[in-house]
């Protein structure tokens, strides 16, 4: 059995990483909640964010963490035409039509990445991305802490947006009863479009963080998507704070799984957990009566 330093370091790192995972899943979650859409291109939006962060750094020389708002706006804007030209016309055509359309978007994006940026594996190389932080017996990557802080801040901001603003009211109302919301004057299409863009913007930021903490390439989207889905199911579809807690729980449990079974089992632990939650708590494991 590894010593206590390793165990605690692993768990701390897992929790911090979980926070970042939560951010990467946030967009998927709110889009699921509001539009009932499994956005199969979500992972590719994350990759767009990662490339955006990388090229922002290369062309401006400004640290991508400072450029995060720019990345967020860029990816968010990119999502607007996707919604209005591709998704909106399919409203009322059932879940498959929109889902398949987003899959098509996903393969188009992936192809575009290869053509534009080559298939190389990239990473946003910053010093802070590789510096360890040591607190007593615990050592964990500094980037995890930075990413965690940014993610949690952003998730709380989105939570505030959803729970305390007029837009958030419209969003929640549209999610549960679009027709009633519309008759009350809510422009449901606009709300959906902005939600979709918000989801993409969050994915953009998450992608930059992932790109700094790890590595990415044109086809990284698939793995991002599956991880995000696990977080979303754990936290409950469309539940912002649930997503944060789902992410942290997944990060921690994966770390424990990795520690006890080997790193290869981390994702397996995640997926098994995912199916178990689906089987026993289909609304997410912290869903209480938010009916």
């Amino acid at each position: 059995m590894p010593d206590i330093g390793i165990i605690s370091s692993t768990i701390v790192a897992g929790v911090l990483l979980g926070g970042i995972l939560a951010l990467t899943a946030l967009g998927l979650s709110i889009v699921l909640g509001v539009m009932r859409l499994v956005n199969l291109a979500h992972g590719d939006f994350l990759v767009v964010g990662a490339y955006a962060g990388l090229f922002f750094l290369q062309f401006t020389g400004i640290d991508p963490l400072i450029g995060l708002p720019v990345v967020a706006v860029f990816v968010g804007m990119l999502a607007l035409p996707v919604y209005s030209f591709l998704l909106a016309p399919l409203a009322g055509r059932g879940a498959e039509a929109q889902m398949m359309t987003m899959f098509a978007v996903s393969i188009i994006l992936e192809n575009a990445f290869v053509l534009a940026f080559s298939a190389d594996t990239r990473s946003i190389a910053r010093d802070y991305a590789t510096v360890p932080l040591t607190l007593g017996p615990i050592t964990f990557p500094l980037i995890y802490l930075i990413g965690f802080a940014i993610s949690v801040t952003l998730i709380l901001a989105v939570h505030w947006l959803v729970s305390a603003t007029a837009f958030g009211r419209d969003l929640r109302a549209s999610a549960v009863d679009a027709q009633a919301a519309a008759t009350l004057g809510v422009d449901v299409k606009r709300v959906q479009m902005l939600t979709f863009a918000l989801g993409a913007a969050c994915a953009g930021v998450g992608g930059t963080l992932m790109g700094a903490a790890f590595q990415f390439g044109p086809s990284s989207g698939g793995a991002y998507l599956l991880n995000s889905l696990a977080v979303v199911v754990l936290g409950g579809l469309g539940n912002v704070i649930g997503t944060l807690i789902g992410g942290i729980a997944l990060g921690a449990l994966q770390s424990i799984g990795g520690l006890t079974l080997g790193d290869g089992y981390r994702d397996l632990v995640g997926m098994a957990l995912f199916l178990l939650v689906l089987a026993f708590r289909p609304d997410g494991f912290l869903a209480k009566g938010r009916t």
Partner: peptide, 23 residues
């Protein structure tokens, strides 16, 4: 597990099943 709820959850669940088996 997959039939617990209709619709979306089944879709998401089957996706996870394939990934689980692959892993």
């Amino acid at each position: 597990a997959l039939f617990r709820l209709r619709g979306l959850y089944f879709t998401v669940g089957t996706l996870a099943l394939a990934e689980l088996l692959r892993l």
